[in-house]
Design a binder for these strands. Structure first.
Lengths: 180, 180
DNA sequence: CAGTTATTTCGGTAAGTTCAGAATCTAACA
DNA sequence: TGTTAGATTCTGAACTTACCGAAATAACTG
């Protein structure tokens, strides 16, 4: 951490904390922050030294970041060590994470809700739990809406994000769909 | 757990798992699932028994759910124990959580990024780290866009959510803002 | 106000996670 | 083909977080 400017330190620590709040391992998030801020790709040893964490820990964490699809291995001429760099396009990065979370958490939840609903219909005490069914159905509806929403957002190219957000603002205002 | 239908069990367990992935304590999420599915408000003792967790643990978790604003205390006539019920409107619940997460995580991140940027400008090695500044600025831009986005979504009444999502779909398609 | 029941707080313990270092594996290079 | 730098995996220790049960507190009843 000594090698880092105070600003970088501050950000990396914060990002680590935020990670834990969203179910991401602290070290994983810190490494991500470090790579995101780094001008050049770093090798594992360098990361371990900079953040004062074990080399092994870095290895595992990098693997995870690669699984999220936001960190990539690159090679530097004349150096046989792997170097790692983070995606720099924030929007693209966000989309990656969104896609991955959908795959890991939303999709399984959709399946589960559907299973539950079909099982609920077969159950003996069927009408006794009409209520549960209704609840599950509403939740399913919600996640389906989220999926639709995601499908739209997923294809907006980075350059258009701001435009897109502003547009949404206009439209909702015009149509008065959001009475306050 | 014995008192629960298989379907309820299944859902509660899943919801608990999903909770952990998003930084929510497993028990907290399970209690939330239980209350969400429950037709009538439950008292703490009942929750503890049903989920086989300690009474005290239930107490703490309920407090947390109340902090999120998605569980409320209600009183049952002729019973002096507190009873708890979950909000049933999924969309409303989602908005609550969104609002809370914004307050707890996004807003502090915005502040931090602004601090970092202003400190970065004062730093000695100022131009050496033009790059870092640029990265931070982009991240800030992203979170600002997210905030705008949130502000729109935040006022959509439950009845209009589906309409809203479909509308977004139409608009983006019409304008061809999302070329595939 | 004494007795009863519900709720919260707190200290210890169990469970889970993170981490360092050793052992193993892989591949570059002589 | 042997040597070595680098990457990965494994294991036990340290630390963190979640959880329980006991004790204290608060709320109610007669």
């Amino acid at each position: 951490m000594i090698d880092l400017s105070p600003v970088k330190q501050k950000f990396i620590l914060h990002w680590g904390e935020m990670g834990t709040r969203w179910g991401i391992n602290r070290t994983v998030a810190q490494i991500h922050a470090l790579l995101y801020l780094s001008r050049k790709p770093l090798h594992a040893e360098e990361i371990a030294r900079t953040l004062s964490v074990a080399r092994s820990n870095v290895s595992t964490s990098l693997r995870e970041l690669q699984n999220w699809g936001i960190v990539k291995v690159v090679h530097v001429l004349g150096d046989r060590r792997d170097h790692f760099e983070s995606m720099k396009d924030v929007w693209e990065m966000f989309r990656k994470v969104l896609a991955e979370r959908k795959k890991r958490e939303i999709d399984p939840t959709l399946s589960l809700l559907r299973e539950c609903l079909s099982e609920a219909q077969k159950e003996k005490s069927a009408d006794a739990d009409k209520d549960t069914q209704e609840r599950l159905r509403e939740l399913l509806g919600f996640f389906e809406a989220m999926t639709t929403c995601y499908e739209q957002v997923r294809h907006v190219p980075t350059g258009n994000v701001v435009k897109f957000v502003k547009l949404g603002d206009e439209v909702t205002r015009m149509l008065g769909i959001t009475p306050r």
